[in-house]
Design a protein around this nucleic acid. Structure first.
Lengths: 264, 264
DNA sequence: CGATGGTTTGACTTACCTCAAGAACAGTGG
DNA sequence: CCACTGTTCTTGAGGTAAGTCAAACCATCG
């Protein structure tokens, strides 16, 4: 594995250096030989740059001009409703591509802001276009990623349509841990919650109070441990059970009795 | 405008005939000359086919093998949770592409079922792959559509994170009317609700009872008129107001004071 | 040190869910 | 055509989870 920049976390890497986990891993993997990739990266990443906490990456309604690959830090995308309340559409974690939803419509739905000091690679739309035209495989990979984003949002919808606050919160915490790349040690998941409770609540369609109370209830049961934003999920299976493992292959087979006529 | 097949609705068209509103409009528009398009369509649409109410197009977890373009009818995609309850991920309306979310992961998240007699164009993944390789512009268009799907889901998330049942329902009804292609006559929107109340409720994370009660409340105020599945939105602006027009450009500007450093 | 913004906690209210029973409706078969 | 069954939709009564308002608490930072 290549050498990273200084120690701002596992995802952080030097300015114009090759970036195996971010861009390479997600966009160019198995597309080109190493030599070609490096050249391509130089062409795509024009302005590797950084944001301070609270700085915005883009505003609502702005025209789509670039994709962003988040290297380090965490972002949130939100819209502000008439009454002034924020509705959080999504969080963004290191290694994720930001702005995919704006490619189609041509402008951004919400405002994206840094929740912590963050570094992004800026991939201009025009550059991306040119590269895609030249290397169809890159475009195909981009299509795959975009499709996967829909799948992620579909699962999110599933989560949100579960009425109970418990479920939403449980699932959200597990999801965040996963996207942070947290690895279990002795069965526990330890991580820093990257956003304020209010944000987490707004994301889930809850209030900060309910969130807080729910967390305390779990803490009493020793399922989790919180100290400020320091989180430990001590019994991940408990939360997973709450989140409602929606596989249910058997139950489904009982309900759906009609045959599928296209997929033999 | 070209001649359609028999009168199964505005979207319905003959079997292997050119299909200006469905596939052409969405996937091949402004890509190729008319001659080329027709040939391409023949290559892509292998099995135009139909489903009866209750038949499934695909099951949960099945591998991705084809995209579907819905010509007529309405579909729902859902997963069944452990307790046996359906969670509805999405509805699909004529002219829409079904299965985009499975391209990336390689298999389908939920089960897709017809809510009314439906007709679909089947576009095999292998065919699509080949055509995309040959015509990069087609792939680009597909990417755009996929991206737009994310945007749609993001708005959906926004809707779901609004806690109130009122908002969700209002927004959902307007959304359905829009996707059905309903045009206002004398300011009113009349249409057949294509799904059962239970389904609508499951989609929104509500119960059928709350849905029913909410509708009655609106009916008392003369905002809507329902007779079974026959719907009339008599005062669309009223519902739109409830749905919470989340533009709020001014409010946003107050909240977000940090400058945007990438988009001049 | 006080100011600030995030977090917790409490008391109260309300919106929504649950359960249960009718009412409307469609399809079926006599 | 009319009882039938089953399904969907409505309506009601009652309980509970989650929202609201308000105050106390707790870090962080100037």
């Amino acid at each position: 594995m290549e050498q990273y920049g200084d120690s701002a976390g596992p995802w952080h890497c030097g300015a114009l250096q090759t970036c195996p986990r971010c861009l390479f891993a997600n966009l160019l993997t198995s597309v080109l030989a190493t030599r070609g990739r490096e050249r391509l990266v130089r062409r795509l990443i024009r302005d590797p740059s950084s944001l301070n906490t609270g700085q915005t990456l883009r505003r609502e309604g702005e025209p789509f001009q670039a994709l962003f690959m988040l290297r380090s830090g965490v972002l949130k995308t939100f819209v502000v409703s008439e009454d002034g309340g924020e509705q959080i559409i999504d969080f963004h974690f290191p290694g994720e591509l930001v702005g995919l939803s704006a490619m189609g419509t041509g402008n951004h739905l919400g405002c994206t802001m840094a929740l912590s000091p963050s570094a992004v690679c800026v991939i201009r739309a025009s550059d991306m276009d040119a590269v895609c035209k030249e290397y169809p495989d890159v475009q195909k990979r981009l299509l795959q990623l975009t499709s996967r984003e829909i799948a992620r949002r579909e699962r999110m919808h599933q989560l949100m349509s579960g009425t109970r606050a418990e479920c939403r919160l449980a699932m959200a915490l597990l999801n965040i841990a996963e996207r942070l790349g947290v690895i279990a040690s002795r069965g526990e998941l330890r991580f820093q919650l990257p956003m304020a409770r209010v944000d987490l609540a707004a994301y889930l369609g809850l209030t900060a109070e309910t969130t807080s109370r729910q967390l305390r209830r779990w803490e009493e049961r020793n399922w989790i441990r919180t100290r400020g934003r320091e989180f430990t999920i001590r019994v991940p299976p408990a939360l997973r059970a709450l989140a409602g493992r929606h596989s249910a292959a058997e139950a489904q087979r009982q309900v759906v009795n009609a045959g599928c006529q296209y997929m033999p």
